[in-house]
Structure formats: structure tokens, C-alpha cells
Simulated assay, not measured.
Amino acid sequence: MSGGRLAGRRAVITGGATGIGFGVARRFLAEGAAVLLAGPDEAVMNDATGRLSADGAQVVAAHVEDLSHSGAGERLVAAAVEELGGIDILVNNAGGGVITATANHTEQTIRRTIDNNLWTTLNSTLAVLAPMLAAGYGRVVNIGAESVRNGLNGHAIYNAAKGGVHAFAVGLAREYAASGVTFNTVAPSYVLTPEIQAGLAEGTLPEEFRSITDIAVSLIPMRRPATVDEVAAAVLFLASEEAGFITGQVLSVNGGSSMG
């Protein structure tokens, strides 16, 4: 579409093939942006771009890579330039990891959790800095986590990674406040993604995970999880021109589980 709040903008969404990332991609495309999805699984990426294109999206492309690897950020920016002609918006949604009691973690699971959440964000953000600063415009929106604030069970290692994501955005926002590039974080509480919904219906989710989600809902005064669309709406706002005077902030999408 030619109109919309992101008309003419070029957006890269990491982890954009599933869950929150896919919801953000769909919303961005509906608002006129050209979108590049990035993630490590080629089959999943092809399925996502196919579904988005079937919705009538004009420009949707994919870059297949593990963004935690050295040089991945530079290759991501090169792909955005090739496919979209540049990059105006970066959504750092890539994440995941091992959610379990801290004593259950190993060095391998800790590294995987840090890599998936923090290193992907560091690599992608550092790579987009130069082109955004040169253009005098940019929006970097991270997907953080409400659990950083409320200390949800089984999330200590995950929070170490996501807490770094929160702090990184604040530091960049201060450093580049006068540049035209903003850095913000959307921090959702428990989000009922299509993948989680399917796992619950099919009974394939581990008992520990289901127990943690029950606790997460009990901490939310609204007594329900967030929807993907609710999170995507917050990301859209911070990625738009309307949010030009907002930087270094954490926007909680949490049903009131922490306030103030």
C-alpha cells in the first residue's frame, strides 16, 4: 500500500518469521513499510515471507543467518540495502533461549540464551548505526521483557540477557540523542503467540513452561496474557515518525503487572 504511518520506510525485523516478529511484520506491511525479515531457519523464513506476500504485501524479503555470529550485522545491513534500498527501522525481536530454574542451567544453555537475545541485538544495532546516523534518521526498537522488572520464576539467565538489551538502548539513546535516531524498548509480559497457543492445545509444551506461564498470568492484574497484535501496536508507534521525541524508554505492554 502507498499510504500508512510507515509509508516509504524500510524496516528490518529480526526473528520476524514467527511470534511477535511476524505480527510486527504484518502490521508494518499494512502501514506501508517495505520489510526484510531476518532469522536462522530458511524453511521457516520462506514460509513466513510466503504467507505475508499472500496477504498482498508489496515488498517483503528474507535474510537467512544466525545474527549472533561475528559479522552478521554487517551482512544484514548489506541485505537490507540490496533488497530494500536501505534501512530506516530496525526491530530487534530475535530472542528465545532456555527458560528454567537457574540451577538447571549449563554453560551451553547460558551462552545460547545470551547469544539469542543480547548478541543478536548488539550485532544488528551496531551495524545499522552508521547508515542511520549518516541519514540523520532512524528508529531502533528492541523487544525486551517484563520479567526484567518482576523477576519471573525461571527467568534469571533470560533476564540477564534482556536486561542488557534494555540497558543498551538507554545508553545509545543518551549518546545519540541529537542524531535523529531513537532507541527504545517494548517490554511485553507473557504473550500468547500462535506457537504457544498451538503447543497448549496439543499438549506439547513442557510442564515447567506451562507452570511458569500460569505464574506469569497470575502476576497480571488484567488476568490474561498479551496478544501479539497488542505488542505490535506498541512497536509500530515507537517505529513511527510520531515518536520522534521519545528515546531511551521502556514501554511496558504488561496488563499492569508492574506500574509506574
Rank of each mutant, 00 (worst) to 15 (best):
A198D: 12
R174C: 11
I20E: 03
S124L: 06
N150L: 03
L129S: 02
A135N: 08
G21Y: 02
M222T: 14
W119E: 04
L129E: 01
A234M: 04
A79H: 08
N123M: 13
A17F: 00
V170N: 01
A156V: 11
S189F: 07
E230I: 13
A177N: 06
L67Y: 12
G163A: 11
F183D: 02
A78K: 09
V186R: 04
H105L: 10
A187S: 15
G56I: 12
T227K: 10
L152V: 02
D41R: 15
Y176M: 08
P131K: 12
M259A: 13
S189L: 05
N104T: 04
A187M: 07
V24I: 15
V35Q: 04
R139V: 08
E107K: 11
L192A: 15
L172G: 10
I13E: 00
R149Q: 12
S189K: 06
I157M: 02
A232M: 08
P131A: 12
V170A: 13
R149G: 01
F22C: 03
A34T: 11
A134I: 01
A130V: 13
L118C: 01
L219A: 03
G19R: 07
V35P: 04
L192Q: 14
I114G: 00
G16Q: 03
P194Y: 07
A127N: 07
N142R: 06
G21M: 05
L67P: 01
A239Y: 02
L90V: 03
V228H: 00
M1E: 09
A79W: 06
N142D: 04
G164I: 11
A43W: 10
L172Y: 07
G248Q: 03
S2K: 13
S252L: 14
A145S: 15
L172W: 09
N104W: 08
A80E: 01
S252F: 10
N46Q: 15
E241R: 13
A173F: 08
